[in-house]
């Protein structure tokens, strides 16, 4: 699985403030907004049944479990973070077909969600959604 292109967004976890009070510590029980972590749509059969990346025609999304490392590179500026899996997500099938291009490289469908700490290292939290490429970290 080298260089899977897609969109990255962010999510909060770890029983923090506001609507994040009810999010818990994620599917792995380790998730915290301040850590360098991410959610991956294929961490288990139960997870895949929720996210269904195959509905959008996303292939090559390997089964990876808690703690596995991926690197996420922002296609618009080249910034890169390495994070470990802490939760199941995003719900890829809800947003099939979304597409964004940067410098001639295009990316479709939501394939990863980073924690605020990790996302803000490569993009602005207010931007919300960025084209990226994912590699094994």
């Amino acid at each position: 699985m080298a260089g899977l292109n897609g969109e990255v967004s962010w999510f909060c976890c770890g029983n923090a403030w506001g609507p994040c009070a009810s999010t818990g510590r994620g599917a792995c029980g380790t998730c915290h907004s301040g850590n360098f972590q991410h959610a991956w749509p294929n961490t288990s059969d139960a997870c895949f049944a929720i996210t269904h990346p195959d509905t959008c025609g996303v292939t090559g999304m390997s089964r990876r479990t808690c703690g596995f490392r991926h690197s996420t590179t922002n296609l618009c500026n080249g910034s890169r973070v390495v994070t470990s899996i802490a939760d199941c997500g995003p719900q890829t099938d809800l947003f099939c077909g979304e597409r964004a291009c940067c410098g001639g490289t295009c990316a479709s469908n939501r394939i990863v969600d980073l924690t605020p700490a990790a996302f803000s290292a490569i993009a602005s939290l207010s931007a919300g959604l960025i084209p990226c490429t994912i590699d094994v970290g």
Binding site: G34, N35, F36, G78, S79, P116, A117, A121
Partner: peptide
Amino acid sequence: ETAFAAATQYPEPGQPDPNFAEG
């Protein structure tokens, strides 16, 4: 890009980032 790469140092995956705060 060179200037940027030199200025940033990130934590180990799974660990908190000292240059980030939440609360």
